[in-house]
Design a protein around this nucleic acid. Structure first.
Length: 452
RNA sequence: GGCGACGUGGCCGAGUGGCUUAGGCAAGGGCCUGCAAAGCCCUGUACAUGGGUUCGAUUCCCAUCGUCGCCUCCA
């Protein structure tokens, strides 16, 4: 059974499922006004790993992740560039999913767009207003946070402490708000802004309202898990939750937050691979599995530094995985090492201890290699089968064995013949030729193998 | 000011009251190889500082220094 740290109760506890065997989870998706960055990559990778692992254990996962396609930032960019706002959102969304593909993140099972749910949002806001939890001002509709008893649950701060600490910040919409922390559910449109009709006048929904309506709308009351980056804990998740509480509806039963990507750290990286803080650049420069491996080797709640050195180290570890996969490709893997998989599950079930799982993966590869060196193909096969299973469970794509063209095989045979004849100059030149053509050449006592 | 996280070997990054003190990358030595590659073996003896608790602390407590995050729309 998977145990996960729950931000709301501040403890690692079992991830309960409303319906046994089926997990409902909501991940706050991107606001599509710019290219995805490394932080987006981390968040999507962490939950992709969670999802794939659960699916691997036989659980049916429904992952809803929205597209916020109406927001102040989108409008601001549209104005700045003199473009249609929908032109920006469609292009950015397209880029987003290309980036996701570039890091092997599966598409969520549901991708609701905020603009498709405006009617439901208006309805919810009306309900809140009718109950007295929300009120209209001259620029919109606000939720009264004082009507929510435990407001501050996810922020770990009471409303009073928040205000006390807030200091000299500018308070948005201060003039007419009942409390400085009250937040906008509906924003009335200024001339020229995109707008939808509502009882309060033409306008657009507030960000926090979008996510409650879509999560409850698709997953229903009391869904299992709500996730996102640490920075969404407050105010976004707090405010989503506040609306649900004010509506008297049960919201997420478990809250999961991933740590940040910290300092790209370094002039070297920028020089050698360009500005990698943009996810698109990273995809351009590295194998799709590299970022995933970096994240797997640290805990999802820890901050992680992404540097060129770190990515390259991960790349080399993946090269080792690739050569292992190639080396064991022909083994008969009908049987899998159960103890290894048990240990893997135990690690993952303990708050997604992927660093331990990766240590296990590398240990298992070593054992299998040793078995192969000793000619014990059965043991090697059981272990390498476990390696493949683990990779599948965490979404580490395995290299596909490319069929080697006949002429390349012929060259490999010629290489072996030259070695047998102790004609090493010829052998070396054939090897160099193959390597120049992009082949990995492994010359062993049993003969030469080539692969990409 | 409030709340929270964290300081581990050359780098990244787990973890733990003593038991085999992860793993990856890099480095040195060795095995294998005609030479490489791949693989395997060995080596480095780390836990911010100062106190305290304890038979014993890197791990618990306190303080100090330092880094970072959130405190109204940022994954």
């Amino acid at each position: 059974m998977l145990h996960l740290y729950d931000t709301a109760t501040r403890q690692v506890r079992e991830l309960a499922m409303r319906e046994p065997g089926r997990l409902s989870m909501y991940l706050c998706g991107p606001t599509v006004y710019g290219p995805p960055h490394l932080g987006h990559g981390r968040a999507t990778l962490v939950y992709d790993i969670l999802r794939r692992y659960l699916e691997w254990t036989g659980i049916e996962v429904r992952l809803v992740s929205n597209i916020t396609d109406i927001d102040d930032k989108i409008i601001a960019r549209a104005e700045r560039e003199g473009r249609e706002w929908s032109d920006i959102t469609t292009k950015c969304e397209d880029i987003w999913f290309r980036a996701m593909e570039g890091i092997d993140v599966l598409r969520p099972t549901d991708v609701p767009h905020a603009t498709e749910w405006v009617d439901e949002m208006v309805e919810m806001i009306s309900t809140l207003e009718a109950s007295g939890a929300a009120y209209a001002t001259s620029d919109g509709v606000y939720l009264s946070v004082e009507s929510v008893e435990d407001y501050g649950l996810l922020a770990y701060q009471s409303l009073d402490d928040m205000i006390a600490g807030g200091g000299d910040r500018e308070v948005v919409g201060a003039g007419e708000k009942r409390h400085p922390a009250d937040f906008a559910l509906w924003k009335l449109a200024k001339p020229g802004e995109p707008a939808w009709e509502s009882p309060w006048g033409a306008g657009r929904p507030g960000w926090h309202s979008e996510c409650v309506v879509m999560s409850l709308g698709l997953l229903g009351d009391g869904f299992d898990l709500h996730c996102g980056g640490q920075d969404l804990r407050f105010p976004h998740h707090e405010n989503e939750r506040a609306q649900a509480v004010a509506l008297g509806r049960e919201f997420a039963r478990h809250w999961m937050h991933n740590g940040f990507v910290v300092d790209a750290e370094g002039e070297k990286m920028a020089k050698s691979v360009g500005n990698v803080s943009n996810l698109l650049d990273l995809i351009e420069a590295y194998d799709s599995r590299v970022y995933r491996m970096v994240l797997l080797q640290s805990h999802y709640r820890s901050p992680v530094g992404i540097s060129g050195d770190g990515l390259e180290a991960a790349g080399r570890s993946i090269a080792g995985l690739d050569s292992f996969i190639a080396r064991t490709a022909a083994l008969d893997e009908t049987d899998t090492d159960g103890a290894t998989l048990d240990a893997f599950r135990a690690a993952m079930d303990d708050d997604l201890d992927t660093p331990k799982a990766m240590a296990l993966l590398f240990d298992t590869m070593r054992q299998a290699n040793t078995a192969l060196d000793n000619g014990d193909a059965d043991t090697a096969a059981r272990l390498s089968s476990a390696v493949r299973e683990i990779c599948r469970a965490v979404g580490l794509r395995l290299i596909e064995q490319e069929t080697v063209p006949a002429e390349v095989l012929a060259q490999a045979a010629a290489l072996d013949a030259a070695r047998a004849a102790k004609d090493f100059d010829v052998a070396d030149s054939i090897r160099a030729e193959l390597q120049d053509a992009g082949w990995q050449v492994e010359t062993t006592r049993d003969g030469t193998t080539v692969r990409r």
